[in-house]
Design a protein around this nucleic acid. Structure first.
Lengths: 153, 153
DNA sequence: CCAGACGTTTACGTCAACGTAAAGGTTATG
DNA sequence: CATAACCTTTACGTTGACGTAAACGTCTGG
């Protein structure tokens, strides 16, 4: 059982990925099914093998889902453009045509700006929600003080 | 048709509320059905009449749904405690028992603190998402500069 | 070598959050 | 006063995001 190379092999089976990400095995397969995650590698026995990159992406998906409440389709869009950066770099390096490069860049920038706007709108709503909650807490404090005065009188 | 009092009557029919809130009529009835909105007033003809408070609540619901991605059940909780403030004030005024008052206050404060925590967690995730997006924009800018230099050379 | 614990696909079930259609009542307008 | 444009309830349909079960393959320890 003891190998020189400790089993910190970067590739994980579905069960372990589920444990690490907090998602269920069903969910992992589902995400793959709908194209939210590219089909991971397989063993000879046809077991799925998730790379660290796969796991990272899955954690990212979960984050976006929980914190932003995005649908899986929206998450797909957002992550795709997140990773499209690499494609763009590739395309950028691939061509030496300045016009093509310019076009690539502009497209990428536009998408990114849109995403930032979306996120900032949500940030604002969240911030004002938080402020309202804090104000309420302050009111409670005031009442508490009032109560204390009354009690001690 | 012309009345001295312009028809800025504060009570609206379902169609107008739908327009104002961006929700559908079906959704309005659904929210009422599941108790997310208290049954609004009715005309003699049994038409729903939404008060400004109703509309405000609906707008709040939509905000929480879109920006926070909360489920309707969660939204219900959050708004209920938002409005529970009034109940608490009432209960607070109703009793003169300092112990009871203290208990009310503590319960309310605990709930509010929980909600603040939730919101702040989401705020953090959102903020880091935004930062990542901004960094990407910066990289694009760098590439753009690089490109410009190349082009002009 | 085989039992048990993992994995696989396939497929039907479920729950929230509505959409949509049917069958009818109300009200403003020509 | 009839027709159109609203409204009502009731009820079944749909979509997203999975849960759950069946039937089967794979691998590991005793």
């Amino acid at each position: 059982m003891a190998k020189d190379v400790p089993t910190d092999a970067p590739y994980l089976r579905i069960d372990q990925v589920a444990a690490r990400t907090g998602l269920t095995k069903r969910t992992l397969r589902y995400y793959e099914e709908i194209g939210l995650l590219a089909p991971p590698a397989r063993t000879d026995g046809n077991y799925r093998l998730y790379s660290p990159a796969d796991v990272a992406r899955l954690e990212r998906v979960r984050e976006l889902k929980e914190a932003l409440g995005l649908t899986l389709a929206e998450i797909n869009e957002m992550i795709q453009t997140e990773e499209e950066r690499d494609d763009i770099r590739a395309a950028f390096r691939a061509t030496h045509d300045p016009a093509a490069r310019q076009a690539q860049l502009e497209r990428a920038e536009a998408i990114t700006r849109q995403q930032i706007e979306l996120v900032e709108r949500k940030l604002h709503t969240l911030a004002s929600t938080r402020d309202a909650l804090r104000e309420r807490l302050a009111r409670y404090s005031a009442l508490r003080t009032e109560l204390a005065a009354e009690t001690s009188s």
